[in-house]
Design a protein around this nucleic acid. Structure first.
Lengths: 152, 152
DNA sequence: TATGAAAGACCTAGACT
DNA sequence: AGTCTAGGTCTTTCATA
């Protein structure tokens, strides 16, 4: 990965789904060279994918919630985490340091769906000791952008 | 928004940066019709954008942390939230119900950057009463996908 | 790794249903 | 809202440096 790769990634981070040629024009390189680089970045798993960002409010996913989940034993973390990750409404699953705790982020249509999810798919897992739910009243930012260095 | 729109969005959610024609072939419609629909979805802000998902480990953003931030007064929530949202390393800012608390998600290169961020950009805001930091040891899932209904 | 050329695929506006 | 057409643009492979 060099400076050119970083330039490409910066452009894509601003707006994925941009024509290849436009990228190549911006950085002053032949389209085929850019294509090759992007392909390599994908192959090396530096680019992991391309996502649409949909407006959740339009799909009955107006509710964002975080649920802190304490597992019964530290050894249960991995399996529990993987199982939680399979739930469609669960967008994120993180293992937090300090208390045998998983933190998940959920998008649901409302109270009802959230309650059902927690009760029928989370709280009833044998490895789940306790849950604490935090409901977001509003969200000021939601992005997957990361800070890219200027150089390697 | 109808069933066709949902079909299109489902395809894009699986893989944005897919040729338009392929979408149109999948749903059995003329490319121009699909283009028109996508444009409308963008104009209506149902599609908010397209993002690359980069592998954070490759950019010195290996550390994910959540910081719970208590503000001094409920009335300070909005301004504080907006200000936090401007920080590049802050990917998410949510206002949580129940305790005048903002929850943010940070991607940083490591302890040092995280500490510096918290001390020089967060804890020193006059509206910030207290912070609690949770560091993720591992992440099982990170996605922006939402569950789309089958019908409208 | 980059370029340039060439063939084929894709995009998109416009006429029409 | 959708189809079809057609020109222009973009993608992608390959020969070459």
């Amino acid at each position: 990965m060099d400076k050119t790769d970083l330039e490409i990634l910066k452009i894509l981070q601003k707006k994925a789904r941009i024509p290849n040629v436009e990228v190549s024009r911006t950085i002053g390189m032949a389209p085929s060279a850019v294509l090759e680089r992007i392909k390599k970045l994908e192959a090396k798993n530096i680019i992991q994918g391309y996502e649409v960002r949909l407006n959740p409010d339009m799909f009955g996913c107006a509710m964002t919630a975080f649920v802190s989940i304490q597992v019964t034993r530290p050894s249960k973390v991995r399996k529990t985490g993987e199982q939680l990750a399979t739930i469609e409404q669960v967008q994120e699953v993180h293992y937090l340091a300090g208390g045998d705790t998983l933190m998940i982020k959920i998008k649901a249509s409302g109270n009802m769906e959230l309650e059902k999810l927690i009760q029928t798919r989370i709280a009833d897992m044998s490895s789940v000791k306790a849950t604490k739910t935090f409901i977001a009243l509003s969200s000021f930012k939601e992005s997957a952008k990361i800070r890219l260095p200027d150089e390697v």
